[in-house]
């Protein structure tokens, strides 16, 4: 009895150490505004108008996220899809990268809400 308990404690201790030793530990969820700054501003710009430092090198202008006209023509589902799977998944430019490997679905959903705040508009129904 004691032996099995000891063995199971040892087992979990080894498991815990194994996890801590992993380089790819799950990282805490970030705020949408912070994710936007780090991942999106490089192209969409700190004002969100599509004038980031990479924009001069692009052949397609990054979407102006503050434009109610442009952003209200997109459904929330398609905005989610373009962020997660990239522009190509919604028939747009490959210069809009797929962020699914970096951001969680929850973080992408938060970003969609954040974009709706930026354009002060609702998604196409």
């Amino acid at each position: 009895m004691i032996m099995t308990r000891l063995a199971s404690i040892l087992f979990f201790a080894i498991l815990a150490v194994g996890f801590l030793g992993q380089a790819d530990v799950a990282v805490a969820k970030e705020k949408a505004a912070d994710n936007y700054s780090l991942y999106c501003v490089q192209c969409h710009g700190s004002k969100g108008t599509g004038r980031g430092i990479n924009a001069p090198a692009l052949s397609v202008q990054p979407r102006n996220h503050t434009s109610a006209k442009d952003m209200s023509s997109l459904t929330d589902e398609s905005v989610f899809k373009s962020i997660k799977e990239g522009g190509v998944a919604v028939g747009k430019s490959t210069q809009m990268p797929p962020w699914g490997g970096i951001l969680t679905d929850e973080e992408v959903t938060d970003l969609v809400k954040h974009l709706r705040g930026m354009c002060k508009c609702e998604g196409k129904k």
């Binding site: 380089a23 990282v27 990239g86 990268p97």
Partner: peptide, 10 residues
């Protein structure tokens, strides 16, 4: 991400 969990590359 293995090298930099927050890298701004897809």
């Amino acid at each position: 991400k293995h090298w930099d969990p927050k890298v701004w590359m897809a």
